[in-house]
Amino acid sequence: MSAPGASEKEVWPLWEVFVRSSRGISHTHVGSLHAPDATLAVRNARDLYTRRNEGVSIWVVPAEAITTSDPDAKGAFFESPAGKNYRHASYYVKSEGVKHL
């Protein structure tokens, strides 16, 4: 099975890149790149995505290893929360006299 965005014409596999911009912040997906293996993927990521001091840590993941939700099943997957306002904190009125809420 080919990875999303991968093409038969590409010699090198696709990798997804995650960069952490500073300590205490989680790694964020910044894009993808091609590399022959994981070691070089980290180096390519350094050259492509941290040229302007964007990060202090890099993760690379083979694009193949990512399982995605089905884009055609958006309704079934993501519409259920609509109308269930009670799942949002702002739905609730603060009870009188309650401190520290």
Binding site: P4, L33, A63, T68, D70, P71
Partner: peptide, 12 residues
């Protein structure tokens, strides 16, 4: 790279 990501299914 962006192009590849656009063609990729929405990753949620």
């Amino acid at each position: 790279v962006t192009d590849a990501a656009t063609h990729a299914p929405d990753r949620g």
